[in-house]
Amino acid sequence: MVASTSKFKYIVCDPELCIGCQLCEYICSYTKTGEFNSYRSRIRTVRVDEVLITAVACRTCENAPCVIACTRDALSQDPESGIIRIDPQKCDGCAWCIEACDFGAISINHETKLAEFCNQCEDIEDGPQCVKICPKDALEYTTPDQRAQRTRRSLIKESLDFPSKAKDPR
């Protein structure tokens, strides 16, 4: 069963809008490592065929399966933000967390042998840098609730031919 994503914020990609440019991977790897390298990005673009394109980052599941799966108690989840934190002293790169993740959102750094997670750029003032650079606004920093609400609203706006704002009678 796919893990539930619920109250925490996460970075989500709209495959309708994603053009596969990979700029999110560049900015992420640079922010985290000082180098441009997709292998070190915590958000990954996926291009399955010519038009199936999207990007995936940690979805901050509640009761995160990666935390549960970790045999060395190296992972914990921040109760406020849902961000997965790693204790580098404990993690040995065994990759059980990767097997537990339903979204393929975790990777192992081949040099440090540590698991790497998206931390939503919590240490940077203007938030997730990938969302900031995305040229097509395909990435959104949101919660499932907000996303559902937005979908409902845009569905109504698109399907009903109402003026988008009530007119000021004057």
Binding site: E16, I19, G20, C21, Q22, L23, Y26, E50, V51, I53, P135, K136
Partner: peptide, 29 residues
């Protein structure tokens, strides 16, 4: 069907187009 980009490109000019019916249905590029 969709507009896509080369890696590293924020413009995205590639108009992915598909034949939906007729003898050439399924062709897409």
């Amino acid at each position: 069907v969709k507009v896509i980009a080369c890696a590293q490109c924020p413009i995205a000019c590639e108009q992915m187009s598909m034949v939906k019916k007729g003898p050439f249905a399924g062709a897409m590029t």
